[in-house]
Design a protein around this nucleic acid. Structure first.
Lengths: 218, 218
DNA sequence: CTTGAAATTATGCAAGCGTATAATTGCGGG
DNA sequence: CCCGCAATTATACGCTTGCATAATTTCAAG
């Protein structure tokens, strides 16, 4: 009864990699980067630690993959709001800004995740690349929306506007994540939409989409 | 020659605590939170590891003290710009915004420091308190400056304006720290001052203070 | 010049880390 | 049916971590 070796099933490579990445993100969100040990990740994913090294060259390798996925998820969750937005330029921009400053993008756990990775961005050039392309990707998408506004300026103005708007959004996101109880219900989203509007010289607040309520029937 | 015990001198309690805190900040800035081990901190401060526990109840205790000092330093370095600012409300506000988005506040190392601590803010309530009071302190100082502008609105407007302006500054600070080469010379500071001006409805860009050049003679 | 308390160092320990490697097991192709 | 290979587990190693404790040294007071 001592040597009961654990039963297992073979999963496809992609599913296993996904599960390991998801487990790592979960753990970092809960307890910071230091909680995401090889053993804890494996445990959460329902495998043994050795398997991690079978799918990832090193733990650093897994970390990079996880950060990449996080950035993709945040950007996706912000811009997926376009699907249910009105089709005016103002309405579409307001929808993205608001979505960036509401759950599930603006979340206590998301900040922990982001911060957990950020300190790696310093030391690891590969992580820095992931960060830069993630940031530029978001900003470019936002800039494309801004360009559709009536009275948009030249390329230089456009660039600066996009930098500024991404800045407000990021800053408010940060503070809303870190101190959720310091602000009123949806206050951050309203301030964000108003500020982006002020920077661009348009009234966006009139286009603020209402908070999405659960659409599960009752 | 084996048992040469290390010589030492007694320093005042305050100086030793200061040295240990400074060493911890240095190390986190250089290599992230994980680089600031008890042994490394002691080494950098020129003492042996045991001494840390003589001055701090635990490493966590030292960490809290270091975070507190960091927040104080960042706020101080931003608002010390008031000393050499013009005495118009616009000039003073622009000076603080610009100082927040230039060295030594906006620094690659500063971001690493901040991120290194941030993931502790999640798990440790005491750290969360330090963070909140640091944020509110900065915002209140900024709000006081905004209130001196001609045509400032009521308390509600004032609060929202302060939140928004702190948001832009924080967001731009973050991006400027993380991707220094992605922006032009002093570009972030200019965009920041312009954006804060746009949010408040005043032209601040005209009051942008020039970049301070080294005043060491040559 | 001695003495005693406080500051500092030295040593050791138990736990946890990432990684390497060998032993097993599941499972599809013959 | 079974055989071989890849997927997975198991075990062990060397290293580092934070912390506790005992041994020493400094320095001021008497």
């Amino acid at each position: 009864m001592s040597g009961e070796r654990r039963k297992f099933t073979r999963e496809g490579e992609e599913r296993r990699r996904d599960a390991l990445i998801a487990a790592a993100l979960d753990l970092i969100a809960e307890g910071g980067a230091q909680a995401a040990t090889v053993r804890a990740i494996a445990d959460r994913a329902g495998v043994t630690p050795g398997l991690i090294r079978h799918y990832f060259k090193s733990k650093e390798d897994l970390t990079r993959a996880a950060y990449l996925r996080l950035m993709e998820r945040l950007t996706h969750d912000s811009f997926v709001a376009l699907e249910s937005a009105s089709d005016t330029p103002e309405g579409r921009l307001a929808a993205v800004v608001a979505a960036s400053l509401r759950p599930p993008v603006m979340t206590f756990g998301a900040l922990g995740l982001w911060a957990g990775f950020m300190h790696l961005v310093q030391s690891d050039p590969a992580m820095s690349d992931v960060h830069e392309s993630g940031y530029l990707n978001y900003r470019d998408l936002l800039q494309a929306l801004i360009a559709t506004l009536p009275g948009a300026g030249g390329p230089d103005d456009l660039r600066q506007a996009a930098i500024a708007c991404t800045g407000v959004i990021d800053g408010l996101w940060l503070e809303g994540c870190a101190l959720p109880h310091a602000f009123g219900q949806d206050e951050i989203a309203r301030i964000g939409v108003a500020s982006v509007g002020a920077i661009l010289g348009v009234d966006l607040l009139a286009h603020l989409p209402p908070v999405a309520t659960k659409e599960t029937d009752e």
